[in-house]
Amino acid sequence: MTDRSLKIRGLVKEYKRGVPVLKGIDLDIAGDGITAIIGPSGTGKSTLIRCINRLVEPTSGQILFQGMDLAQLKGAELRAARRRIGMVFQEYNLVERLTVMENVLTGRLGYMTAFKAWLRKFPPSDIEEAYSLLDTVGLANFANQRADSLSGGQRQRVGIARAVMQHPEILLADEPTSSLDPKTSVEIMELMADLAGKRNIPVVVNIHNVELAKRFCGRMIGMTGGKVVFDGDPSALTDANLKEIYGGENWIE
């Protein structure tokens, strides 16, 4: 199996000139397991994740994945790299007017010619796989419903199915549970951990809920002010670390 580890070197992102959101991030992410990134809002967690699949253009630095620098890719090369990177979004980002099935199959679009995609002529094996994924996430009976008719938890299940459909070699999740209730959040994290574990997909997840992160993730990265301030095992995360990451202490019980 190909190497699925990710190396980030000196990653800087400035939305406004001279005001960096990411101030030189260095990270090595192993080719398996779930890595959580925690930190206060606005600290660049989302930006970091989006730099990896280039939904946000990094200002400088390297993102090394399978011998390529993702930060330098262009055009067809970038699209080919994106196919191998799955992404789960905070607000699910399903195409609302398409059916659940079409949304899951969106994960295969990178492999489809424009004409075939337009006619929905997906290979039978893709459709078969999409159905079995929908079985796994418990939505097989919803295949022909429009995505905007689903509840939040259901939508996120479709979002995960769509990402897994890509056969990703790394899965990025940008606050996948922030728009969900606590019970559903746990279910979604379980589903993601389960699917990724069985397929050996490393996961990088931005998450607000520290307890949830501790429960599911093998490694925690704490960010504040555009820098990494904690990196280690969840059990090693102390209240002092949390205070450093989030500032203040009244919120820690």
Binding site: L55, R82, R83, M87, L94, V95, L109, G110, M112, A117
Partner: peptide
Amino acid sequence: SLKQVEAVRASGASFFNVLTYG
């Protein structure tokens, strides 16, 4: 909604596929 477009783009879809699906 650009979020929906972003998701299709993140899957590595070509420009035309982003248009037809996103």
